[in-house]
Design a protein around this nucleic acid. Sequence first.
DNA 1: TTTAAACTCTACCAAAAAGGTATACTTTAA
DNA 2: TTAAAGTATACCTTTTTGGTAGAGTTTAAA
Lengths: 140, 140
Amino acid sequence: MKITQEADYAIRIIIHLSVLGKGNIVDAATIAENEGVTLRFTLKILRKLCKDNFIRSHRGVKGGYSLVKDPDEISLKDIIEVIDGDFAINKCLKDENACNLGKADTCNVHEALRGIQDIIIREFDKVKFSQLIKNKREYK
Amino acid sequence: MKITQEADYAIRIIIHLSVLGKGNIVDAATIAENEGVTLRFTLKILRKLCKDNFIRSHRGVKGGYSLVKDPDEISLKDIIEVIDGDFAINKCLKDENACNLGKADTCNVHEALRGIQDIIIREFDKVKFSQLIKNKREYK
DNA sequence: TTTAAACTCTACCAAAAAGGTATACTTTAA
DNA sequence: TTAAAGTATACCTTTTTGGTAGAGTTTAAA
């Protein structure tokens, strides 16, 4: 029941971009340095965030990355899903055939877990990045 | 954000024992066969459940395992914790020193995640095994 | 009192996932 | 034209997970 280290990094990266605000460009090296993640790994995460359209990249000299959406339109759920994939607290909730007893449809556990999962997703979706950058100053 | 396969098995094992009811003995081989888990792995899980006092073992011929508590006194949270350890949706919530920026105490994300984690734990704790065995018949 | 059906303990192993790095590009402002 | 940026793909290492093995110990019952 953990988010991955990579998702944690992705959250910090989006926080960094959120502080700068939608549309403002910053290069990967600056983010990496400030957030304590290696440049290479930062780049890898940034590419995933690009592919899912939360940020966009600007190639060439003076390039970098910028937020596509406003921080209050992006939730923890959104970013964790980009990295870790859909929330599924048990494999049978992602794929009913994964139940090795073949009875996901009649299983009380399955039903209970689905209820919990729905609540978890809702809670992660409630937290927007606008809230996460409260009291944060600009980076120099 | 998944429970492990092993925790899933443990849940089924406790369900099996819950159907039989507190104090009733069944041997590992029977559980293994009914729940679709190998005997060896079942034994391993049973030992962990013993150590944490949810079940007790009976050695020797006609031995096996039985529930120590009533099914309505055992929750999904209890059993998942036996196998997967304490719930901690991010490493910084288990150990504040794990924050590689060293600012768990002032971190907005940390604070938000703790709130979500508390809700998750509460939800898993709400589900008791008495509820999970509704409509389940005895095993033959 | 012997036997076999049970559980116990510790260690080990293989596969999968996670975390991270390397190489060889392409794009573009200045 | 050049160097500062991002891109794409592939690879590697470590940790976690899932599972197995071997050599015991205990005990009901014949």
